[in-house]
Design a protein around this nucleic acid. Structure first.
Lengths: 232, 232
DNA sequence: CCTCGCTGTAACTGGTTTGTAACCTCTCCC
DNA sequence: GGGAGAGGTTACAAACCAGTTACAGCGAGG
């Protein structure tokens, strides 16, 4: 689930600086030098956002942007221009270009990240319901609270995300791999058995008898399942 | 909840470019070509803002604006004119345009969004109550005063804005990023941890025991939340 | 030109959370 | 009933995280 960002930049040093800062913030990156097949590479990579230098040796950055807008795959992908001079800014701001934002060099890494995040946030906008009721559980997303039979549960961040996942997918069994991907994210450097420990911790919070769980049951030889039935 | 914006524009390409940029920023849109039944469509859609081209083939943009002002449903809806030439600007300014605005082509997507946001914010401001009471707190917007149990609090500017934000969004958890955007604004690039310091300063003003806060609570691993409940 | 208050940042601290390994227990199957 | 494999449980160290303090830069106002 990490977002992919394409960096179209011919200066190797600047490109890797940008890459470094994006990766530090959990983004996947692809650097393109900006030659003739840039568009093809972009369409293949399908980035969630494109950082695009205006001044490229072989092809104009604006031209790439125009092609991006015309591409059915990429048309809605936000483009952040990098420009060196203010007269380029004027062209970025030209309506026909279709860029979403720009930064003038030199820019700070913090500014880069802030702008990237701002644009990606718009895309994410969840259509998930605000409150989530499953059996005797009630989870308020925006308040970041969970209640069991009306009593609020005191959960750590990981426990919250784990329970949130189970509450949104009740009745289904998940193996450890799937749980790691769903709750920890794709770039998990975590052992499979870590799941067991967190299941245990969560059971201690939500089960009256953690040894004989009623909600968070084990599917032996496979993984775990959250029971939506409330009967005993 | 998302704001609706009507685009009255006959050039299909320009219209869809505007639509694209508005939708990217979370707005709902409706494109009208500007024929005779434009007013009826507008009244039906009830937009929060209208983007209106001055030059339309069938009907004058100014005429539509006049009709909008006469309509009981739409009368208070902000109108942003699109004009190609500066002599049209004179005409726009010649009208009693109230809270309206204009943009000359070509204009940048960022400018469009900025203007739209500015108008909608003003709209919201007007709708926001002058005084705001949440629990034992009472905030007077125009006077820029806050009272806790009737005693006035002595807050700095940042503390005031931070508290104002929390008072208008009680019970919800916000991470540092969201707080920065809401209180510091989008174009501020300050460190995330700056939030912590201001939270602490605010706690010292509003909490009897800043170490054991009653209102401004920490959501560990996430951010902060203002509790609307006043019980202990 | 000086002072004062506000703001943002870095550094340090103490507590909490998290991931892992090691060991234990259960269950299934022979 | 014994063994193998799977999950349960525990302990612990590292990482993380928020609280706190100190301080420097800045701008306003004297």
């Amino acid at each position: 689930m990490p977002k992919r960002i394409a960096i179209v930049e011919d200066e190797a040093e600047l490109a890797s600086l940008i890459e470094y800062n994006l990766q530090r913030n959990g983004y996947q990156t692809l650097i393109l030098r900006g030659s003739g097949d840039t568009l093809k590479s972009l369409e293949q990579y399908r980035p969630d956002l494109i950082v695009l230098d205006v001044m490229l040796p072989e092809i104009d950055g604006f031209e790439i942007c125009r092609e991006v807008r015309r591409s059915s795959v990429l048309a809605r992908t936000p483009v952040v221009f990098l420009t060196a001079r203010s007269d380029e800014v004027d062209r970025v701001l030209g309506l026909e270009i279709g860029g979403d934002d720009y930064m003038t060099k030199p820019f700070s890494p913090r500014e880069l990240i802030a702008r990237v995040k701002a644009h990606l946030r718009r895309e994410e906008m969840d259509n998930e319901p605000e409150t989530l009721e499953t059996g005797p559980f009630k989870l308020e997303r925006t308040a970041r609270r969970v209640f069991l039979d009306g009593r609020e549960l005191d959960l750590t961040s990981t426990e919250f995300r784990l329970l949130e996942f189970f509450l949104t997918h009740p009745g289904r069994a998940y193996n450890r791999e799937q749980l790691l991907e769903a709750v920890w994210g794709e770039q998990r450097y975590v052992t499979l058995r870590t799941v067991d420990v967190h299941i245990r911790r969560l059971r201690e919070r939500i089960e009256q008898q953690p040894d004989n769980p009623r909600y968070l049951t084990t599917v032996r030889g496979f993984g775990y399942r959250f029971e939506e039935k409330s009967e005993g």
